[in-house]
Structure formats: structure tokens, C-alpha cells
């Protein structure tokens, strides 16, 4: 017996969607669309700072991390090459 649940869900979905739509209509949500375009720009002051110059230690740390990841990628590439070379043997 599943129909009552389906019907309840459909009814709930429709009622919520229609209620919200008519609330928006009466509340003027669709009226000033030109101003709405600018809302994200007004939302917060410009906040992108210039990139911070890192200390020598931080630069070394990032370089070490980069080489670790590069080694991991090289290992992945080696697996792929090995697999391709040996593809016919499997």
C-alpha cells in the first residue's frame, strides 16, 4: 500500500511550491529585477587581498610538497606505461 504516501508527497510538493510562488508574487520578489542583478556586488566590500609573499621556510615547504605529489604522479604514470606495455599479456 504505497499510493497514500505518493499522493501525500505530491500534494505536499505542490502545496509548498505554489504557496512559495504566490508569496513571492505578492511580496514583490519578481518586481525589481534590475536591482536584483547587482545584489552579489553590493553584498560585501571588495576583499581580495594581494597574495602574501611567503617566508623562505613556507616556500621550501610548498616545494617539498610539490615534489612529493610529482613523485606520486610519476608513479601513476609509470603504472599506466607498464600496464600499456604489458596489455597483451593479460
Amino acid at each position: 500500500m504505497y499510493l497514500p504516501y505518493f499522493v501525500t508527497y505530491i500534494a505536499a510538493g505542490l502545496i509548498i511550491a505554489l504557496a512559495v510562488f504566490f508569496w513571492a508574487l505578492r511580496n514583490g520578489q519578481f518586481r525589481d529585477q534590475q536591482r536584483a542583478r547587482f545584489l552579489p556586488l553590493e553584498a560585501d566590500p571588495e576583499a581580495r587581498g594581494a597574495a602574501v609573499r611567503k617566508s623562505r621556510f613556507a616556500r621550501l615547504e610548498i616545494a617539498a610538497l610539490f615534489f612529493l605529489v610529482a613523485a606520486g604522479l610519476a608513479a601513476s604514470a609509470a603504472v599506466v606505461v607498464f600496464a600499456l606495455i604489458n596489455a597483451n599479456r593479460w
Binding site: F30, Q33, Q34, A36, R37, F38, P40, L41
Partner: peptide, 20 residues
């Protein structure tokens, strides 16, 4: 996307009506 892109390019959304 609707929040980040207009802010990143420093331009208003192309059309808020279309988005709705």
C-alpha cells in the same frame, strides 16, 4: 555559481529574470 561569478568578474548578473 550565481554568487561567485558576478563577484569575481565584478559585473552584475546578465539577467536575474532568466535566472528565476
Amino acid at each position: 555559481a550565481y554568487y561567485v561569478i558576478p563577484r569575481a568578474v565584478k559585473a552584475p548578473l546578465y539577467s536575474h529574470t532568466l535566472s528565476l
